[in-house]
């Protein structure tokens, strides 16, 4: 579903991704782990097409398409969802207005009918319920005054509403307490566990992986994937640390 080959990217002339290759098949949850500053967030921004993140080499193929040739909003319409490590506040724009416009813009780009106000509200209510987020929160401005945990739940409600084929979730577990973590993890399973969908799950912690059980685990270090394995790799990282696991031959 997603094939990244030898990707290099820089910010302000500084190389951050340095020959990164990765394949994610449909139906797969692929966890990315790695030390701080390894380039995990950079990878997610490059996949999303963030201005300032310049691709200097390599390719990204998404569902047979050249992802890097698309504008950020076109990538979303093509089925890509980015869960932000730091969701952005948008004063003056309500979640309901934002998400309805976003969903209908995506549907239009795909040649689908727009949802009516009523249809949209039913959908939003359903997904908010799934994540245990009060509907009143969705009437408020996007992320404004939300706690860290509420922001992450709201991200997952957005994902539920937009129903992407592929989600890149950047530290969705950070800032969550144990109960919220389980709700969010189960939300990810409910929304994204399907044969024709896939997830790139960026995380530091095993505790999210106990809920969203990954099929594959890769370690990202210094801008490239240095090791890929099954779920046991995450457990070994937890027990032995990055240095020990990365030191052994691939």
């Amino acid at each position: 579903m997603l094939k990244i080959e030898n990707l290099t990217a820089e910010i302000d002339g500084k190389t951050i991704l340095n020959g990164l290759s990765l394949k994610v098949a449909a139906g797969e949850v692929h966890a990315i782990m790695g030390p701080n500053g390894a380039g995990k967030s950079t990878l997610s921004y490059v996949l999303g097409g963030r201005p300032g993140y310049e691709v200097t080499g390599g390719s990204v193929t998404f569902r047979g398409q050249d992802l890097l040739g698309l504008e950020p909003h076109e990538r979303a319409a093509a089925g890509l969802f980015l869960g932000f490590q730091y969701p952005v506040e948008i004063p003056g724009v309500s979640n309901v207005q934002f998400l309805r416009e976003a969903l209908n813009a995506q549907r239009k780009a795909r040649g689908e009918e727009a949802l009516s106000g009523g249809e949209f509200l039913r959908l939003a209510k359903d997904k908010a319920g799934l994540l245990g987020l009060d509907m009143d929160m969705l009437k408020r401005n996007v992320n404004v005054g939300f706690s860290g945990g509420e922001k992450k739940r709201a991200e997952m409600v957005q994902m539920g509403i937009l129903d992407p084929a592929f989600a890149v979730l950047d530290e969705t577990d950070s800032g969550l307490d144990i109960d919220a973590l389980r709700v969010v993890g189960e939300g990810i399973n409910a929304i994204m566990r399907a044969p024709d969908k896939a997830v790139l799950l960026i995380t530091h912690y095993q505790r999210l992986l106990d809920v969203v059980k990954p099929d594959r685990v890769s370690i990202l270090s210094k801008g490239r994937i240095v090791k890929t394995g099954g779920p046991e790799l995450a457990l070994r990282l937890e027990n032995e640390g990055y240095d020990a696991v990365m030191a052994e031959p691939a």
Binding site: P51, E71, F84, V88, F98, A102, L103
Partner: peptide, 11 residues
């Protein structure tokens, strides 16, 4: 905010 909105599908 604009990149965030683009990532949700807004031109």
């Amino acid at each position: 905010a604009r990149f965030y909105m683009a990532a949700r599908g807004l031109s």
